[in-house]
Nucleic acid binder design. Structure first.
Length: 562
RNA sequence: AACCCCGUGGUGUAAUGGUAACACAACGGUUUUUGGUACCGUUAUUCAAGGUUCGAAUCCUUGCGGGGUUGCCA
């Protein structure tokens, strides 16, 4: 018992159902699927679904389980190849693999058409000639039953003939539809003779102009699941009331597999907008630069921002899978990001907003010493590097205060501080320009403090620095939460709660020389500041651009807020 | 309004009729050449009422609260 409980298994109500099905011999393995519509970029909510579906396949790998990637492309007016490509890239980046199991709902259009004909022949579907408005009127309301269309009982031969003409393009958009014949009085509106085929004269991204009629989601999804032999079809809560319809098609069509739909709640993190429609608006109205803008909750945006895929997976795991529609504190994600980055990121020294320090008692202008700096204090295998120190360095502007409050441990006139990995210095003189802005500090160093504490006095802070002569320059983009309120989606207009400080661009930051070799896709901790990555779009060898993924926790800043 | 689903610390999740727990957050402390990390500690939870039971977060009933649904979107 002790041996098989060592695997840190994730468990939730869906995995429980799957376990029971497997134990009962209902299935010998699991087949799940991730079914995006290629009409936009994937976001954090999709990551949850991806982790669920692909995660289940990984966990049951010993039984031969798999997870399919299926593009749900039944609406040619909205879907594009651009999205098909980005979706695949995002799933791979998250660390999942569909192997050979790539599917498109559109590959089944012919089969779906045949099944529609089958239903007509069974007297379970009919061509309706009511207009869209009329169909809506006839459907009834939540409290009143609907009424039958006058075309509902037309002979099957007649429906068959018109349906065939619909396919061959003899009608305009919206002129006729094919409907399932179920029950116009059912309290579940989805069962009141749902439209299963509509006329859409539009070019499809894969089938071109082969078709001008397209199956609805309800008529396609479950059947595609059946064709692919999906065992458990997992979707979000808004499809719950569609399940009886899902089952109705599976029961009334000659399919060889009977998949089961199970619904779970969507992810809704604080301080973020999740709906695809609003994400589109953010891009199209220019509130952000692109789909992969680091302020976006898209997977590509998060990737560019520097969120590690492991952190996203870990976050999805802690969030879990339930039917409860709550709101998840974004701090959970931020914690997962810091946890992963703390583990993997190489430490660097970078001065975001520099002031010059000259060390007046340094042995000479030409004298340089190599300071040894560790790359990651939690992981010795990541090694060390050296940083040259000579008479002039840059330090951070907020590491100096003319009139410091009591608990300020950093530099101020007459105080002593350690230059990290190096000597302690004392500030002797403050030089300001005519406007009173500090432009330089004159300090003296204590040569006896390298690698040891000064004698007889306590130095409480170590501040980061960058050598003046060898410093690299870079643009640094500081990102903060994209919205100012925890539920931007609940606002009358989310545009009014966009955080104006979500992006701050720093043009004159100074980096330690080793960052010349910074690699796209690698995360660095700029010590005492945060985690940063090379921007994948705008950075170049001669003009470096870094994005702040997330700031370090800052108990000093927190203390000052109080 | 009708139907369906869901209610466990501030937030998310676990406990599957048998001592209500974990993570995050918040707060306090120890360590520290990152005001970081790590470690220790504190605060705080079963929506309500009734019922079944030796025993209920769990099962039943009612109420209350939240979410979803009234596309020829998915």
């Amino acid at each position: 018992m002790a041996e098989n409980s060592n695997i840190n298994e994730t468990s939730d109500f869906i995995r429980d159902i799957i376990r029971e099905d497997l134990d009962a011999g209902k299935h010998s393995t699991t087949v799940t699927r991730f079914p995006p519509e290629p009409n936009g970029y994937l976001h954090l909510g999709h990551a949850k679904s991806i982790c669920l579906n692909f995660g289940i396949a990984e966990e049951n790998a010993s039984t031969g389980s798999r997870c399919h990637l299926r593009f749900d492309d039944t609406n040619p007016t909205k879907e594009e190849t651009e999205y098909v490509d980005s979706i695949q890239e995002d799933i791979k980046w998250l660390g999942f693999d569909w192997g050979d199991y790539l599917y498109f709902a559109s590959d089944n259009f012919e089969q779906l058409y045949e099944w529609a004909v089958f239903l007509i022949n069974q007297g379970k579907a009919y061509v309706d000639e009511l207009t869209a408005d009329q169909i809506r009127e006839y459907r009834g309301t939540l409290t009143e039953p609907g009424k039958d269309s006058p075309f509902r009982d037309r002979p099957a031969e007649e429906s068959l003939e018109i349906f065939s003409k619909m396919r061959s393009g003899q009608f305009k958009n919206g002129e006729k539809v094919l409907r399932a014949k179920i029950d116009m009085a059912d309290p579940n509106i989805n069962l009141r003779d749902p439209v299963i085929y509509r006329i859409l004269h539009a070019e499809h991204h894969r089938t071109g102009t082969d078709w001008c009629i397209y199956p609805s989601y309800d008529f396609a999804h479950g059947q595609c699941d059946a064709i692919e032999a999906i065992t458990h079809s997992l979707c979000t809560l808004e499809f719950e009331q569609h399940r009886p319809l899902y089952d109705w098609f599976i029961d009334n069509l000659p399919v060889s597999h009977k998949p089961r739909q199970i619904e779970f709640s969507k992810l809704q993190p604080t301080f973020t907008l999740m709906s695809k429609r609003r994400l589109i608006q953010m891009v199209e109205e220019g509130h952000v630069d692109a789909w992969d803008d680091p302020r976006m909750s898209t997977i590509s945006g998060m990737r560019r921002r520097g969120y590690p895929p492991e952190a996203l997976r870990s976050f999805c795991k802690t969030v879990g899978v339930t039917k409860f529609t709550g709101i998840t504190d974004i701090a959970l994600l931020e914690h997962a990001i810091r946890e992963q980055l703390n583990r993997e990121a190489l430490r660097k020294m970078v001065v975001l907003d520099p002031i010059k320090v000259s060390i007046t008692n340094w042995p000479g202008e030409d004298h340089t010493e190599q300071m040894n700096a560790i790359n990651n204090p939690g992981d010795d295998s990541l090694g060390a590097r050296t940083i040259p120190l000579s008479s002039n360095v840059y330090i951070e502007r907020d590491d100096f205060m003319q009139d410091p409050p009591k608990k300020f441990y950093r530099l101020s006139p007459g105080s002593e501080v350690r230059l990290r990995y190096s000597y302690c210095i004392t500030c002797d003189e403050v030089i300001k320009d005519s406007a009173g802005v500090v432009i330089e500090l004159k300090c003296t160093y204590d040569p006896l403090t390298l690698g040891k504490n000064p004698e007889g006095r306590k130095v409480r802070a170590a501040i980061h620095w960058v050598p003046f002569n060898e410093a690299l320059s870079a643009e640094i983009r500081l990102y903060e939460r994209t919205f100012t309120v925890d539920e931007p989606g609940a606002e009358d207009d989310w545009r009014t709660v966009i955080n104006p400080d979500a992006l701050t661009v720093l043009k004159n930051s100074k980096l330690e020389p080793s960052l010349a070799e910074a690699i796209i896709g690698t995360s660095y901790q700029f010590e005492r500041k945060g985690y940063f990555c090379v921007d994948s779009k705008n950075s170049s060898k001669n003009s470096l651009v870094f994005n702040r993924t997330i700031a370090l926790r800052d108990s000093w800043a927190k203390m000052n807020k109080k």
